[in-house]
Write a protein that binds this DNA or RNA. Structure first.
Lengths: 341, 341
DNA sequence: ACGCGTTACTGACACGCGTTACTCTCCCGC
DNA sequence: GCGGGAGAGTAACGCGTGTCAGTAACGCGT
């Protein structure tokens, strides 16, 4: 491994001082450097293959130019999170645009491993994006209290912190309204996760709002909880089938919906002829389910990007909205049809 | 944001020198410090909520204790890479065990954006794991030439660098042998990606090896190329159907297989009655396809972990094998059946 | 000749830590 | 009484950069 050149090497080669090198390479507008000198420095740096040492830069500058994405989810959840990759892409894109790099911190589930706060305290990162937070996360509250730059991806009602999320309520409401418009009246709901997760609560709220607006009473027995993955969707749907009847279901996650559709098939129901299904997320495979899944598109890339931008603005001390909600879009495919006469 | 305490603050509070603080907190075995003093320092650090500044540490120590994962894939590829999350988890787990953190660098596709080499040159990271490399990547060759710590996840024939991968050839061969054992003789193959990707080449090689071993000639028209996602699988299968006949197919990716199954369904073929299908990857949803997909399990978590470990060993200058191949496992589900008499 | 402003730079410090070489004290053996 | 060694700890340097205060040279008006 060859010794890396330092700014002093560049300075020597260009015949100027280290300070000048710094000025030139950082393009400081408030210092006048003639083009001729500037040129010499740039060339010298080029020839030596110089790139400034990140650590030294951070130490001197006080900022790391790194943002960290903290994933506060269980392994199963991460594994079945079909949109994580897209979100990460969005975040990465936003970070890059601001000259930041991205770190990822995967936490062990319900571990006392709240070590991620050390990311900030050790200045490993300048800011954090916390995904899938639980309200019972003490170190998150602590960070917020100490006014560290944190953006939550998701929502957390009672913590005063900036957050970015998709409009789960409106998305779910739209999905159910679609089913209503098709003439369905007995509409079941399978949540995407247990109701300790706010996203699950919100999507359920969208469901109840839509029904309420249509003057349809909410029936407890039409609602079942799933838990992120397809197996839980299978179980939930099997329960519903054994418990009551319905001619449509809003399943608040495509992955869960796939499991649910399997249960329907096993019970002899056809989708959408016997039961219409609307999912949520629009994972890439949803269009290839059998039947192709009507679902609510979650703008995953944009979500990551919005979170990144929000954090960067926070870091730049610019005022910005406390909460950003991204719109969803209903994607019509083959898993819903008009209620049979 | 409160001012963070430094080691000098801890030293003052404990009534010792900064050096002693450093010795104690780094648990240096070669320096004798009485327990009583040690205790005082630890307490002082605790009370102040001290955590050492990562940048300063790196600068002084010369190592960043960060590894970076470079994803050299197109957005579509990343989005449909169902195992990325798992791989990341594995890498993260290995890194954490070694006291490292993980950075992620998503590259724009075929961009001249080879900036990731700056990750190392700027000492942002101590080592790199490059996923999905293309052989035509100049900056990768450059890094290898300069002897930077790089581990490739995947394979790259003519670049002398350490690599970790799943045994694609054996996995594919096993899949096809399974089809042969069921009595199938006309077996089609749809690749998981274009053949510029080595993984696609290898899986295809497994297919041809299995056929060759069974004394079955390879027919060009039984082979079609897909491109990571379900739509491409749909197209590829439609082409095959229009071109020839077969009673089984090895589809070298579950995601692609889902698209392929859709095409079969549209053409009026039943899986597995008319055509048996074996996939590859065992994505979490594979068990919930209709029919549940027989496939080759790719140990994604272990792959990430192995890559992380390999890199860490490299960084510790320990000798280690040049190439690690992880075994796959054939998962039998419902998409394959014995050939009809 | 002198003051003054401008241009084009540079010297030196700060950032927070790891680490080497060194000091000081105390005690032990002779 | 004195050399020597172990124990306990420290001063000081170096890592590579950003940045402020400062300076030398020069032009220009009077």
């Amino acid at each position: 491994m060859p010794k890396r050149p330092t700014s002093a090497d560049v300075a020597a080669r260009a015949g100027v001082s280290r300070t000048t090198v710094s000025f030139v390479l950082n393009q400081r507008a408030d210092v006048k450097i003639p083009d001729e000198t500037r040129q010499r420095v740039v060339e010298a740096a080029q020839e030596l293959g110089y790139s400034p040492n990140a650590s030294a830069r951070r130490l001197a500058g006080g900022r790391s130019h790194v943002v960290a994405l903290v994933l506060r989810q269980s392994p199963e959840q991460v594994a079945s999170d079909a949109v994580l990759a897209e979100t990460l892409r969005g975040l990465s894109s936003a970070a890059r645009a601001g000259g930041f790099r991205v770190m990822v911190e995967l936490l062990e589930p319900d571990g006392a491993d709240t070590s991620y706060s050390s990311l900030l305290r050790a200045q490993h990162a300048d800011g954090l994006i916390v995904s899938g937070p639980r309200s019972d996360d003490p170190s998150l509250r602590e960070l917020v209290r100490d006014d560290f730059p944190v953006v939550i991806q998701g929502s957390l009602a009672d913590v005063p912190v900036q957050s970015v999320d998709v409009d789960n309520v409106a998305g779910a409401r739209g999905a159910v309204e679609h089913l209503l418009a098709l003439g369905h009246r007995r509409i079941a709901c399978i949540t995407n996760a247990r109701l300790v997760y706010t996203a699950a609560q919100e999507r359920l709220a969208g469901y109840t709002q839509a029904l309420a607006a249509a003057g349809i009473p909410i029936e407890r027995e039409l609602i079942a909880e799933a838990d992120f993955d397809a197996p839980s969707g299978h179980v939930a749907m099997a329960e519903l089938i054994g418990r009551t009847t319905f001619d449509a279901a809003f399943v608040a996650s495509d992955v869960v919906a796939l499991g649910a559709i399997g249960a329907l098939r096993e019970a002899g129901f056809k989708v959408p002829d016997d039961v219409s299904i609307v999912g949520f997320d629009d994972i890439p495979l949803a269009a290839y389910f059998d039947p192709p899944l009507t679902t609510v598109r979650l703008p995953a890339f944009e979500l990551g990007q919005a979170a990144g931008r929000a954090l960067l603005e926070r870091l730049a001390d610019r005022a910005n909205p406390h909460r950003t909600l991204l719109p969803t879009e209903l994607i019509l495919r083959g898993s819903t049809s008009r209620r049979r006469a």
